[in-house]
Design a protein around this nucleic acid. Structure first.
Length: 635
DNA sequence: GTTAGGG
DNA sequence: CCCTAAC
């Protein structure tokens, strides 16, 4: 039989299945699991702790409860920070605003020799800026060794010193920041109760860079554009903790952190649909609960579902924005002008929404690349629309001409910007409460829950564009060593480093968007975030698959994988099995019904033959077993 | 962890 | 490609 088949199909012959998988466990298998991360106390935790203690003190001590003056508050904060820093003297600075005594920011820091630490935080306020809305704590990287500074360090190009800024604010923007929600910051936050009423305005300064990357005129280079055109802006790294304690563990889809309109009312996130836990939600409890719950992978779709975005804008199709946009963007219906001029837009790059990725320190660079790629492709592959900003304001009326909006007159400035946004049609689907294991228990008070979280607003100032990912497929080489997925080599990540901490600490690389959130608990869900991108099988892959199945038969997909696709990390044995399924189906249908890259008929024939053969074998095997069992029963 | 099959 | 049951 074997020989016959060899003659018939021109391959090495079928392999009678051996006793299946005797030493399966000893075989090498590709693993994408990430190891859990050590518990590390980060600045956030310190600040949260301080805040919590402050709150406690405030509640328990009558003295503290009368802590009405700024001085008292300041002293309390300072004291708490010092305590937390184990006696080390940290620089605690309070800045009160002019508007009212209610708003105050606290900086927790340690003097950095090269440069002043705090002022950058307030740099370049801009005309519309309203710093006084902040009640925040900021810590520089050196504040304490317990800070997870390595992961959050950001190069401050402007000053040449490294610093990590942890901002925990309660301004209208950061109130939506999960940091505020997830952390026990109520102490600090509660210092300013009035701020809770503010949620309608986001100071433009919170997004000083969001429209910077797309300009009318090309810039000399990225460096100059990011560093010099707005020298007053300092990169800040707001710890992008998702609202859920556990959810910050996972790789966060950037869709949650779109840089979007500066006006919050334009992007309202329906709180009731989102599984946010209150700021003080007990982490342990939540973890337990989440662990015990049956947690389905938090898929991209569901992710979007969680965020109810009510955006009145009609979607601007991305086709409208291209390198040769004259065709569609000419303002030609503005009658008062005798002659209309062509407006030429050069969009150097779109700002890819901020990405937050987590990897254990032990993760390889390759896995980082894959993770980044997954995140990027998830974004780019998702439903996107383009948002247009002019002078920091979102241009909402799609029917206005460029002339009317002033875009055409303003083409020498940086005031025009584009951004990518999630498509409301995708994002507005309400989430059924049953679908979310994260929904708050009904009885749990949610002091902050009325602030619509605005994930897109979290991004404060990422001036540097994330390097455009190479979406170009490198082909479906079965032997591709590093995953045939497009490799984000533009990340310029130091390949010699396998420590993921270094990846975010590399100052020369604009990877602050890759902030690695310190992880305390990882759930399984954290691994699977989005649907994998579709990667059609190439003919070569099909060939390899067919060959392997001819040899090994159906039903030994793991072996098929190891045999023919061992180096194609993106092809799981389930993929191969599925592909075989579709191949069989494809072979059975008429060629007219087939879609995609045509598979040579010869291969399809082999598929059918092999499938028939192995089906027969399976049947025979079953028959044998049946007979054997019957014999056993008879005896 | 693999396999099989429905979605 | 995802999900899940069954092993």
């Amino acid at each position: 039989m074997v020989l016959q088949n060899r003659l018939e199909y021109g391959f090495n012959g079928y392999q009678v299945p051996a006793t299946p998988r005797a030493s399966r466990s000893t075989r090498r298998r590709s693993s994408f699991k990430k190891k859990p991360e050590d518990n590390q106390m980060c600045a956030f935790d310190l600040l949260a702790t301080v805040a919590g203690k402050l709150l406690l003190e405030k509640e328990s001590s009558p003295m503290s409860s009368n802590m009405s003056s700024d001085k008292d508050q300041y002293a309390a904060v300072k004291h708490a920070v010092k305590k937390e820093c184990q006696g080390e003297d940290k620089l605690v600075k309070a800045e009160a605003c002019d508007q009212g005594s209610c708003d105050r920011r606290y900086f927790v820091s340690e003097p950095v020799s090269q440069a002043p630490i705090n002022h950058s935080y307030r740099e370049s306020p801009g005309p519309e800026n309203d710093h006084c809305r902040f009640t925040s704590a900021v810590a520089t990287s050196n504040c304490t060794e317990r800070f997870d500074t390595q992961k959050l360090i950001v190069k401050d190009k402007l000053h040449g010193n490294e610093k990590a800024l942890f901002g925990i604010g309660t301004d209208s923007c950061s109130l939506r920041d999960p940091v505020v929600r997830a952390g026990k910051l109520s102490g600090l936050v509660s210092l300013d109760s009035s701020v809770q009423e503010r949620e309608e305005h986001v100071p433009r300064s919170s997004f000083p860079g969001s429209w910077d990357d797309v300009n009318f005129v090309s810039k000399d280079d990225d460096e100059s554009s990011s560093g010099c055109t707005h020298p007053s802006i300092t990169k800040k790294l707001f710890r992008p903790t998702p609202r859920l304690g556990d959810r910050r563990i996972r790789k966060v889809l950037a869709s949650k952190y779109w840089k979007v309109a500066p006006k919050l009312k334009d992007v309202t996130f329906s709180n009731t649909n989102v599984d946010f836990k209150p700021a003080y939600w007990n982490r342990k409890n939540s973890y337990k609960r989440l662990r015990s719950d049956r947690n389905y992978p938090f898929k991209k779709r569901k992710f979007f579902d969680c965020i109810s975005v009510s955006n009145s804008d009609e979607g601007i199709s991305s086709e409208c924005v291209s390198d040769a946009p004259e065709k569609g963007i000419i303002g030609d219906d503005f009658g008062s002008h005798p002659k209309t001029h062509e407006v030429k837009l050069r969009i150097k790059s779109f700002r890819v929404p901020e990405l937050f990725i987590e990897l254990p320190e032990t993760a390889t660079v390759g896995s980082l690349k894959r993770t980044v790629m997954e995140a990027v492709t998830a974004i780019l592959g998702g439903e996107l629309r383009v948002g247009v900003f002019l002078q920091g304001k979102k241009v909402r009326d799609d029917n206005k001409t460029l002339l009317q909006t002033g875009i055409s007159q303003d083409n020498q400035s940086d005031s025009l910007g584009f951004c990518l946004e999630p498509n409301p049609s995708q994002a507005s689907k309400p989430l059924c409460p049953e679908e979310s294991p994260f929904l708050l228990p009904c009885g749990v008070p949610q002091p902050l829950s009325r602030y619509p979280p605005a994930p897109g607003m979290i991004q404060q100032d990422t001036r540097n564009v994330m390097p455009e990912p190479r979406v170009a497929n490198t082909g479906n080489s079965i032997d591709s060593d590093h995953d045939s997925a497009p490799s984000p080599t533009d990340m310029s990540v130091d390949k010699s480093t396998t420590d993921s901490r270094a990846l975010v600490a590399v100052p020369s690389v604009n990877v602050e968007t890759l902030a690695v959130v310190p992880v305390h608990r990882k759930s399984k869900r954290s691994e699977v975030v989005q649907r994998r991108i579709r990667r059609p099988f190439s003919v070569a892959e099909v060939e390899a698959l067919v060959q392997a199945v001819e040899k090994l038969g159906t039903g030994r997909w793991r072996d098929v994988k190891l045999r023919a696709f061992d180096n194609a990390k993106h092809r799981t044995y389930v993929d191969l099995k599925d592909k075989w399924k579709t191949l069989v189906h494809t072979a059975r249908i008429s060629p007219q019904q087939r879609r995609g890259e045509p598979v040579p008929q010869e291969l399809l024939d082999r598929v059918l033959t092999a499938h028939a053969y192995w089906s027969q074998q399976q049947a025979k095997q079953q028959l044998k077993q049946q007979q054997q069992s019957e014999n056993c029963l008879l005896l």
